[in-house]
Each structure stands twice: as C-alpha cells, then as structure tokens.
Design a protein around this nucleic acid. Structure first.
Lengths: 166, 166
DNA sequence: AGCTATAGATGTACTATACAACTATCCGGA
DNA sequence: TCCGGATAGTTGTATAGTACATCTATAGCT
C-alpha cells in the first residue's frame, strides 16, 4: 500500500468513526432539547414542510422506516395536533398529510434549537470551513444511490431528495 | 442580515440537517450490516479496544448513556463472549472490562464492513475532499468543550477518538 | 368480474433506554 | 476508629421506537 493509499484509508476510517460518534450522540440527545418531539418525529414533520404535504408511504420510503412505524408516528403526531390527514382525492387508500399551524410552530422551534446547538459547536470556525463542511455533508448524504452506510436506497421518484431529506 | 450572514446561516442549517439525516439512516441501518452487533455495542467494543480496557462508568460517561444501560449492554456482550470482566485490584466496586479475542475479531469485521460502506459512498471523491471531510468531522465532534449538540464534555486521553461525549 | 398490487392499520415481540431503588465498597473527617 | 457521603454497578420498572406478519380497503389491469 502506498503512503497515499494509507492516508486515504485512514481518512475513510476517520469519517466512519466520526459519523458513528455523531449518530450516537444525536440519538442520545435528540429528545432532550425538545422532549415533545423526537428525532424521528422531527424528521417526519420536516419532510412534511419541505414537501408541502405527502403520503405516509413517502415518509416510510424516504427514511427506511416500516410503514407500521410511520403509521404509529403519524397517529401520535396527529394526536399532538402537529399534522392533519386529508383525503387524497385520486386514491382513497391514501391520505395526504399536512402540517398544522401548531406543527409548523413546533418545527420552527426545534429547528431553531438545533440550529443553535450546531452553531455553538461551530463557534470559532471560519466561514469557508463552515461552507465547505456543509457542502461535503450534502454530497455525502446525496451519495451514490447504491446505499452506503445504510442509506436507504429506495428508488425515489423525487429528485429533490438530496435537499429535502432530513 | 448581510448576504454573508445569510450564507453562513444556511450553511449551519445544512450541517444540522445533513447530520440529522445521517443519524437517522445510521440508526435505521446500523443493525442490518451486522445484526449481532448494534451501533451501541459496536461503539462500546470500539472504545474498549481504543482504551485497552476500561470501566463501565467510563463507557457511560463517554457515550452519555445511563449506567444501567451500560450494565445491561456489558452483560449481553459478555454473554456473547466479546468481552470479559476482570477485577480492579485497587477498587473492589469496579470491574475492568477487556475485549476477548472473539470481541477483537467481531470488532474488526464490523469495522471492515462499515469502512466498506463508507468507502462506497465516497467513491468518486477526490483524495483532498476525503481528507478534508475527515478533518472537519473530527473537528466538529471534538467541538468546543462547552457542549454543543448536547455534548457532555468528558476528558479523556485519546485525542484521536472522539471526544466529548454526550 | 377477478386477480394482484398498494396504502395503511393493527397485533405482537423485541431492543434500547432512562430513572429509581438497592448493594457493596471506598474515602474523608471527627 | 467509626460514620456519613460518594461511587460502581445491578436490578426493577416503564416507555419509545421499531420490525414483521397479518388484515382491510381500494386501485387497476386483463
């Protein structure tokens, strides 16, 4: 293995390790900032906002969740008043999900808290590094459609996924 | 708000969003690569390897887990034969935890799988970007000692391996 | 009409987790 | 020397998130 190959391998390992650390932390703490909205709930609501309303199956496909999981999450969020179901005129099996004003509110609050937490971590970084980090993360998550670290690899019909997935 | 401020805010939001996406995916898929070792188990074993043996309380502090959670995880990993407890000569309340050969093996296998998954996602990236991404992630996770995303800030000896733990 | 695919809900089971209470041990005074 | 508080870990209990299998209703093709 050449030096360059070794360096590359070490960088990939570091990425793997650091992403894992982040995942662990995010998971452990997600619920503490806003106990009323877990990480999953947050991502589901965020997708509703981005998409302007979608079906439960879209949420399941997007996040690699089982439809039963989404069904229960949706019910909980509905009971909390954060989203509402509307009939889908073209398909009576499905229901369009939409954020309610309360859902929009809570989403904004949580987003703000999370933004603040991240901003704190980025305190002292130069603008170029912040911009570069954002760009690399976006590229990483957009990734090859062939599933990386557990990406969902679903055939998406929606090309805007790379931006909207949360 | 100036243009520059706006761009900075958008970058921070993107980081927040993309890290969240990653966390969601990692969590959803972590167990699938190696069903015998969850994300948490993996990180615990990895820390045992890095530290060359430590106490349960260190694992709890490092990952922001409750000691009861760690206690149960440790018991499960012990029953799987991946770690063993040794008495701590200087403190009879505590037990030093050490990887067994089987634990070392499985850890290497999972690390390899995860490495491969990440490498696949990074296919097509230039060496400089990979190196830069690794560096930024390390810096992000090392973070300000003052808790960002909810980090707890623990002091530890190995600067390379993630730091603060939340 | 009939067959199959799809959207979602429900029954069930399991894992990870936290918090509280408990045991055993350690340590710093008085 | 003994005691009270701190610490390491275990166990009891409760909860969330999740998957898989199954069920209902609807779509849509042939």
């Amino acid at each position: 293995m050449t030096d360059s190959e070794t360096r590359h391998r070490e960088a990939v390992d570091a990425i793997q390790r650091e992403m894992t650390v982040f995942a662990r932390r995010a998971r452990a703490f997600a619920g503490r900032l806003h106990p009323e909205l877990t990480l999953v709930s947050y991502t589901l609501l965020a997708h509703l906002e981005d998409s302007g309303g979608c079906l439960a199956k879209d949420l399941a496909a997007r996040y690699g969740l089982d439809k039963s999981t989404v069904s229960r999450q949706v019910r909980a969020l509905e009971q909390l008043g954060f989203l509402e179901r509307r009939s889908a005129p073209e398909d009576h099996r499905a229901q369009m999900l939409h954020l309610t004003p309360a859902g929009t509110d809570i989403l904004a609050q949580v987003t703000e808290s999370r933004h603040a937490a991240v901003a704190e971590r980025l305190a002292g970084w130069g603008d170029a590094d912040v911009a570069g980090f954002a760009e690399l993360l976006i590229r990483y998550n957009a990734g090859p459609e062939t599933s990386g670290d557990g990406s969902i690899t679903q055939e998406y019909s929606n090309p805007d996924i790379t931006e909207t997935v949360r």
